[in-house]
Amino acid sequence: MELEELKSAWAQYDKKLTMNLKFNEELLRKMNLEKSKKEMNAPLIYEIISVTTGIIFLAVIASATIRYSYELKFLLPGIITSIIVAIWVYNSVSKIKLLSNIDYYDSPIVELQKSINIFKLKYQKSKRLELYSIPAFAIAAMPILGIALRNFDIYEHPIRFIVGIVLALLLGYPGTIWLYKNLYDKKIKNATNFLEELSKFEREE
């Protein structure tokens, strides 16, 4: 079949659709469209909550670190914990920035799809960083949070501290690696592949 014939068959099909498509107006009204408008920014709201919580937590950790800065055994874990939380906050801020720059309503298809997939890639990669830093965070946070919140010096209970470290390392890392492989690895590959396809599509061949 020639392409011009195909185009005219498609035009006939379009006419047929015009005569036969049923539009259910009531169903569209039932969809509660106003509500869906509010749901639009859910990922943005999630990231804003993450940043707010992160900043509050960072303030707690930083003030505890300053309070106990005269003892290296608290100062060092305090600094490490603060750095990890600061990285999490920074990640969320850059995701908010990326999300705010996506123009869903006035972008050509290639541009919008690129922005969406760059965001997806950034999101999955930051999840990887967050997951991998959880065990390190748990180990570093134990001494500083213990002393700051419960006046409990974990160094005076070495067995508990060692058990905590061993649990974080033995369960934490295999767990996060497994989670990452199963939840995010494939998604990163998909987003990367699609970005490559989009670049190829943009090129004139």
Binding site: L17, L21, K22, F23, L27
Partner: peptide, 18 residues
Amino acid sequence: KRVSIDAAIISLSDFEYV
């Protein structure tokens, strides 16, 4: 799936077969 509507809003009625 953010809303649960069972039927399609735009659907095809009896299509005359050509």
